[in-house]
Nucleic acid binder design. Structure first.
Lengths: 273, 273
DNA sequence: CCAGCCGAAGTCATCAGATGACTCCATGCT
DNA sequence: AGCATGGAGTCATCTGATGACTTCGGCTGG
């Protein structure tokens, strides 16, 4: 039967041991890269894609799911599957989730990535900034300086930096900086003994950034951002032993039988090597 | 119908309209974040995970596939599913694939991301560089200067920058820079009228980078990297109308393809620290 | 004529069962 | 000791069926 299988593709079968799911994922990626599927466009229904790619529905769904995790596709229940807008921010959304599970030693490296990125964003923002951005920054900073609630201060601090990065006009830059900033925000540094000093210095750093942007001085903005983040990093390294890890849900306790999670069924000695 | 769903689990159901696959993915992520599953450790078999997470095997596999796309898990046929080493480079591997489908307008923005990153990497490399790195850079540059084959020059240029970034000692920084560099390499600028001038300037830029690193001068290294990349960017914008878009396979015939992961069975060379 | 209800079609989401392919390890033989 | 072989464990894939959701058109009532 094979229904309307006029495709002479029975010859190509599965090229060179390529797995079905990878085959499907590569096919979909190729269709997008080739422009056959434009951003925002709806994909054919699952049965048709299965026929076109030569895989079962299960394999196709796994392929779609993996591309969706990377921000390339979006499935909406009952409506269809669509190519995303392919904006850099969407691509990085999935990566943001993975940052939350990075071990700490890998995490500290991220500061050396975030710092130059925010400095670049500050410089670009200073070069392009308009009045409204400056006004917005001043307003956020004013509320930040007045607030006494720690959670609120955290949120406002993120908003300040996020606003500045968006003002750079570079979406990829802003999105990437947001991702890297997210993990650091889980930490709390306000329990430190020099809390007042830290807060004062942080506010001064923000003021310096605002002034540099208002003066349209990219070099000063970059320097101010670098200094501000370096100082923040020092404090974090000193006073942030553990994040308040409560963002992720607990997993079901497993109703009965089966060995407990503690004892892993892994004969492998562990860290190996 | 729900078939034999008399289980009293109707209460826990799906926490707040959460879909089965998302439930499973979040559960797995939580298990990793919580340390219940350590990097490199094998996961329980699919049937047991299904029971623990309360989803069918199909849904679980979709969840695993999505986390695998983000570099958090790795499935090996016949062996099992394992938590990855959780190195930043692995997390970014998936993102690299998405860069290939970014539309051009979003692509040009990436230069403003890549430039400060490579500058930072050059500065760190200069601060930490040892003799062997300098020797390696000189050797690559020597071959690069001598080569006349365009493809080879492309490869050597990538190797030069990649070596420099790795010398920074920051894995995340190097991996991210590699990802951003990959897409630009599809372009060919050697058809330009000033090809000879471009080549000479590029070689000089590399020499300046080597000298700065050899002199252990981070500021000079960062400046050299910024200058080199800025110049490259100008030429690319001027002479690179279209990439030779043949990197991705066709969907219909597709007799074979390059192995996507390369060959990385799960090295996890060491805890590193 | 317009607003709102409603039902049918299309689509994704999930479940269940069965089979094949591959890896790993231990056994037994040479 | 070295190597072939077998079994157990695990993932990969296919098939079929059912539920849930969205969307859009027509119908009804005002």
């Amino acid at each position: 039967m094979e229904s309307s299988d006029d495709f002479g593709w029975s010859r190509s079968e599965r090229g060179g041991g390529m797995a079905a799911t990878d085959e499907a994922a590569n096919g979909l990626r190729a269709m997008i890269a080739k422009g056959e599927l434009a951003p925002g466009q709806q994909l054919p229904a699952e049965p048709e894609l299965c026929a076109r790619l030569g895989v079962s529905r299960g394999s196709l769904r796994e392929a779609v799911r993996s591309l969706a995790a990377l921000g390339m596709l979006e499935s909406r229940h009952g409506a269809g599957t669509f190519v995303s807008a392919l904006r850099p921010g969407q691509m990085l959304a999935g990566f943001a989730a993975t940052v939350d599970v990075l071990p700490l030693d890998g995490l500290l490296e991220l500061f050396d990535v975030r710092r130059p990125l925010e400095a670049q964003a500050a410089a670009l923002a200073a070069a392009r900034a308009d009045e409204r951005v400056v006004a917005r920054l001043r307003e956020v900073q004013k509320r930040l300086a007045r607030s006494e609630d720690e959670a609120e201060r955290h949120a406002l601090d993120r908003e300040f930096h996020s606003t500045l990065c968006e003002a750079s006009g570079n979406e990829a830059l802003a999105a990437l900086a947001d991702v890297l900033r997210a993990r650091g925000s889980h930490y709390s540094i306000y329990g430190a003994p020099e809390a007042d000093t830290i807060r004062l210095a942080s506010d001064l750093g923000h003021e310096a950034l605002i002034n540099a942007v208002a003066a349209r001085d990219p070099a000063a903005a970059a320097a101010a951002a670098t200094a501000h983040l370096s100082q923040t990093e020092v404090w974090l390294r000193r006073y942030a032993p553990l994040p308040d890890d409560g963002a992720l849900p607990d997993v079901a306790p497993l109703p009965d039988d089966a060995p407990p999670p503690g004892g892993d069924p892994l004969p492998d000695g562990g860290p190996a090597r």
